[in-house]
């Protein structure tokens, strides 16, 4: 008999600050790292520490995710640090919705929605892709997911604000009890 619990525990993360950074990462990397408080990540990776995540979005683009309370100061620090660079620093805290996936089999939820092999991503991997019909980014982090999943994996999925309800809907559908992908 199939395990009739949802495949994943899905929680919406709110109160986050987000800063879009566009710059020549090779030239301005040190300045960004200092102001952001995190090393600049490698291609398709993210760095994280103390509630701050710095993700590689594009060859000249990073996204800093941080506690909302830290936003104003960090935004100012980044703007200041990049004042002499050809750079763009923009508060995008209100632009996105964020869901965290933990529980039994969060990767299976993503495998139903994204044309991506979740298991092939490293623990600090950031993959921009789509979830069903909307653009999204997957942030994979290992941790104590709890809920009995062996890998203890936790995933963060980020999409645009306007499709929040849609994303919540497809995640819940994909995580529906009894829909495990394991062969029967």
């Amino acid at each position: 008999m199939a395990d009739m619990r949802p495949l994943a525990v899905i929680t919406e993360a709110t109160g986050l600050g987000m800063v879009l950074i566009r710059a020549d990462l090779a030239r301005a990397g040190d300045a960004i790292a200092e102001a952001a408080g995190l090393p600049v990540p490698d291609v398709t990776r993210f760095t994280a520490d103390a509630g701050r995540w710095l993700g590689w979005m594009a060859p000249d683009e990073l996204l800093l995710v941080l506690p909302g309370a830290d936003l104003t100061a960090t935004l100012a620090a980044l703007t200041d640090a990049l004042a002499t660079e050809h750079a763009l620093v923009q508060d995008v805290s209100d632009m996105r919705c964020v869901f965290d996936l933990a529980g039994r089999k969060p990767a299976q939820v993503l495998a139903k929605l994204c044309p991506v092999d979740p298991n092939a991503l490293p623990a600090d991997g950031l993959r921009r892709t789509r979830a069903a019909q909307v653009a999204c980014a997957l942030w994979r982090r290992e941790g104590s997911g709890g809920h009995g999943n062996a890998a203890g994996e936790v995933w963060r999925i980020v999409a645009f604000r306007s499709v929040r309800d849609y994303l919540a809907g497809i995640l819940a559908t994909a995580a529906a009890p009894g829909t495990d992908l394991d062969p029967r």
Binding site: A132, Q133, V134, S162, V163
Partner: peptide, 15 residues
């Protein structure tokens, strides 16, 4: 698949 009923299309909603 899931694209039926309320999930047929990703409706975009303003604040």
């Amino acid at each position: 698949a899931e694209a039926r009923g309320p999930l047929f299309q990703p409706l975009r909603r303003t604040p």
